[in-house]
Nucleic acid binder design. Structure first.
Length: 491
DNA sequence: ATAGGGTTAG
């Protein structure tokens, strides 16, 4: 048995993780043909290439490319488009571009394949530029093209303008009722904070599928309209649209952010009805929802009922303990997992355990974990873990050690770090370090009155009335407002 | 025969 390159084919190669029957069939028939020395026809190669793209079967894909060249199929537009798609999906965007440039006469599919390729490889700008280039040709974009180019624009610079331009073209070409296009547009508008535009589009769409609903629900959630997200979820259920795990996660997050324990429990019922508890995504959303809602025992139950546990689930639980002040339990769980080697901790695990130490005031333990991170697990701490440790020292009153760490760490302290440091300076009445922290904060956010007020408080406690007056003068001179938020922030 | 949407956790 020979393959296209003269080496034997490995049959098991075709029995990979392809999900669709057609993918399996295409690869299977290709292997059978190969065994019987029948030359595969062009359309078989085309389907096979598409399957290689879907299953990231690089090895077979490049063999098909080689075979195409040897058999004189190099100029076939169908095969070339499929090749562009294959290379792009396998992250070989340079090869995809090369094949695309070699095509003499393009069609909608070849253009769309490369636009999608740029998009999924994170080159949103190039995707949009290529789309504009396409507009200058005879070949007009269709719904597939629009769906790709819009999702490429999400989060890009100039997304607002691009979205407007695209929407105009979409209406002109009658693609504004296509669910693929609508869901991308909703996502794009929601990411721009233009929730009204997203809603307008949503209500004007007649036969909405689950993805369109999911886009709108997560759009609401992203823009902090969690109540609307929940309302739409209920409405969707009434329309007999079946939620996916993705829907449930989004909805549970909405419940978490509103600390809506009651509604969260109802969603938990839906989760059980759908048999979605096994999804680690759903389980971690549940744990998070119960933790934030204050029902740590229920969070524990969810964790225990989840058969496949991973880092995210464990970390959610540890963070849950940390946030509700059950520091000892957080440490106990973490240590137990390490001993049993059930957890290979990463940066976020350490943030969780350091948060637990911080909330419970376990300084020695905190230092121990912080050091363990590097010595036992080869992880170099990032800003978050430094922030925990610095805050831990400062809250315990060791301000100079905290200040030292801020200088030692390979990052510039951010607003949160300076701000919590200032709070500790206030508690322990350290004028010198407090003044430094306040100066830094004022430099970072000149209009925020909070650091001025905290410093005024520190000075007043020490009876430094001249300094208090100086602060008042500075605030008037710089027109810094004492907003309600500032009062709250200054503690 | 070839191309398309929402990727959900800490």
């Amino acid at each position: 048995m020979q393959n296209f390159c003269g080496k034997p084919f490995e049959i098991h190669f075709f029995r990979n993780h392809s999900k669709s029957a057609s993918t399996y069939g295409a690869l299977e028939s290709l292997s059978t043909m190969n065994g019987s020395m029948v030359k595969p026809r062009k359309h078989v190669l085309c389907t096979a290439l598409s399957s290689c793209a879907k299953t990231l079967n690089w090895h077979l894909g490049i063999q098909i490319h080689a075979y195409m060249i040897r058999s004189g199929f190099e100029d076939n537009l169908f095969l070339c488009s499929a090749l562009v798609d294959f290379y792009a999906k396998c992250f070989a965007i340079v090869d995809a571009k090369k094949v695309f440039s070699g095509i003499k006469i393009h069609d909608q599919v070849s253009w769309t394949s490369l636009i999608t390729g740029f998009s999924i490889n994170g080159h949103g700008r190039e995707a949009f530029l290529l789309f504009k280039e396409m507009l200058c040709t005879q070949i007009k974009p269709n719904c597939n093209t629009f769906a790709s180019v819009i999702s490429a624009c999400v989060g890009q610079n100039g997304a607002h303008e691009h979205c407007l331009t695209l929407h105009t073209h979409i209406i002109k070409r009658g693609c504004d009722t296509n669910n693929f296009v609508v869901s991308s547009l909703i996502d794009c508008y929601a990411n721009l904070g233009q929730i009204d535009d997203a809603v307008l589009l949503f209500v004007e769409t007649n036969e909405k599928d689950i993805v369109v609903y999911n886009s709108m629900i997560s759009g609401y959630s992203k823009n902090l309209y969690s109540e609307d997200a929940l309302k739409l979820f209920v409405e969707m259920t009434g329309e007999n649209v079946v939620p996916t795990n993705h829907t449930l996660c989004t909805i549970l997050n909405a419940c978490s952010s509103l600390a809506l324990l009651l509604q969260g429990r109802q969603v938990h019922c839906v989760v059980i009805k759908m048999g979605s508890e096994r999804s680690v995504f759903v389980a971690s959303a549940l744990i998070d929802m119960y933790s934030k809602g204050g029902d740590i025992d229920e969070a524990q139950c969810v964790l225990h009922q989840t058969s496949e546990k991973n880092n995210v689930l464990w970390t959610s639980m540890i963070m849950g303990y940390a946030q509700c002040g059950r520091g000892s339990e957080a440490l106990e769980l973490f240590d137990c997992l390490l001993t049993k080697q059930e957890l290979i901790p990463d940066h976020i695990c350490f943030t969780a355990i350091l948060t637990a130490c911080n909330h419970a005031g376990f300084l020695d333990k905190g230092v121990e974990y912080f050091n363990k991170m590097t010595t036992n697990y080869g992880l170099s701490p990032d800003m978050d873990q430094y922030a925990c440790l610095i805050d831990l020292y400062a809250r315990k009153g060791n301000l100079s050690k905290a200040r030292e760490l801020m200088q030692e760490m390979p990052y510039d302290p951010n607003y949160v770090i300076w701000s919590s440091f200032l709070s500790s300076c206030k508690i322990y009445g350290d004028v010198e370090l407090g003044r430094e922290a306040a100066d830094q904060l004022i430099k970072m956010e000149p209009c925020n009155g909070a650091p001025y007020l905290t410093m005024a408080h520190v000075y007043a406690r020490k009876g430094l009335w001249n300094e208090v007056a100086e602060i008042r003068r500075l605030m008037q001179q710089r027109r810094v407002r004492k907003s309600a938020v500032s009062y709250i922030c200054s503690g």
